[in-house]
């Protein structure tokens, strides 16, 4: 067992974990943050995407011990003071989700995408979320949702 101390959604969380425990399972099983989903076992689908020190990362590809001392943001930590993040708002406004399973990871990837490029073209968006699978939407409404958030930020 190894001791980890990870700041998750602004709160320091400590735990004794097996060295092989995946960060995704640490979040889901130890912290009950079940918004982070696991959709594959080969790091392709992106359903488990979270932010580690501000950058998107697939939490199924990282051991909890590797995240020791890091700052992790999950989908549960995105809304602030009851106010939806512009991307969450965009996904709602533009019908960017259906079954909702890929959605948390998709949104977290999009956060990083917009941090890097606040005014992305449609091509930029499609390439930016190419590491996240969605089987329901055909991606078009997801693209719209991310554009919505980008436009909203640009108007401010």
């Amino acid at each position: 067992m190894a001791q980890v101390s990870i700041r998750v959604n602004g709160r320091v969380r400590k735990g004794d974990v097996e060295p092989r425990l995946l960060l995704a399972h640490f979040l889901r099983e130890h912290l009950n943050l079940t918004g982070t989903h696991v959709g594959c076992d080969t790091s392709q689908c992106g359903a488990c995407t979270v932010l580690i020190d501000g950058r998107s990362a697939k939490s199924c590809t990282i051991f909890a011990v590797q995240a020791d001392g890091c700052d992790v943001t999950t989908i549960e930590g995105l809304a602030r003071d009851g106010q939806l993040h512009p991307l969450q708002e965009g996904f709602w406004e533009e019908h960017g989700l259906q079954c909702g399973y890929c959605t948390p990871g998709m949104i977290m990837s999009a956060v990083d995408l917009l941090n890097d490029n606040p005014t992305p073209s449609e091509r930029d968006i499609r390439e930016g979320i190419a590491g996240n699978f969605c089987r329901c939407t055909g991606y078009q409404h997801i693209v719209n949702a991310i554009q919505y958030a980008a436009n909203k930020a640009a108007r401010k």
Partner: peptide, 14 residues
């Protein structure tokens, strides 16, 4: 959507 975009949906594994 409000529950799903905030990671508050409950799937079987949850």
């Amino acid at each position: 959507d409000p529950r799903l975009i905030q990671g508050r949906g409950t799937y079987v594994d949850d």
